[in-house]
C-alpha cells in the first residue's frame, strides 16, 4: 500500500503517540523514509511539542506559591478536617 503526503499528515499525531494500527504505522514509516517534506513535518511537530510543553514557557507570578499556601492554611485552620 502506498499513501500520499496528505494521509501521512493526518497520521502525524497518532504516529507521535504510537496509537496507529501496526499496518498503518508501517506504511507511514516507509513513506517517511523517502519523503523529506513529511519527515520535516514530523520532526518540526515533535520539536514544537517539546518546546511548548517546557516549564520555561509559562512563568509563575512572583509569590504565587506563598500566597497559595497561605490561603490553604487559612482554610485548613477554619475546618477541622478535609
Amino acid at each position: 500500500m502506498v499513501i500520499d503526503c496528505k494521509h501521512v499528515w493526518d497520521a502525524i499525531s497518532g504516529y507521535l503517540d504510537n496509537t496507529l494500527a501496526p499496518e498503518v504505522r508501517e506504511v507511514v514509516q516507509k513513506h517517511l523514509e523517502h519523503c523529506s517534506i513529511c519527515s520535516a513535518v514530523l520532526d518540526s511537530t515533535r520539536n514544537i511539542l517539546i518546546l511548548t510543553a517546557d516549564d520555561r514557557v509559562f512563568e509563575l507570578p512572583a509569590g504565587f506559591s506563598e500566597r497559595l499556601h497561605a490561603r490553604l492554611d487559612e482554610e485548613m485552620q477554619a475546618s477541622s478536617s478535609p
Binding site: 517534506i37 519527515s39 520535516a40
Partner: peptide
C-alpha cells in the same frame, strides 16, 4: 489542518 511544509527541519 494542513501543516506548514518545510523541506528540512
Amino acid at each position: 489542518v494542513s501543516p506548514a511544509l518545510l523541506r528540512d527541519w
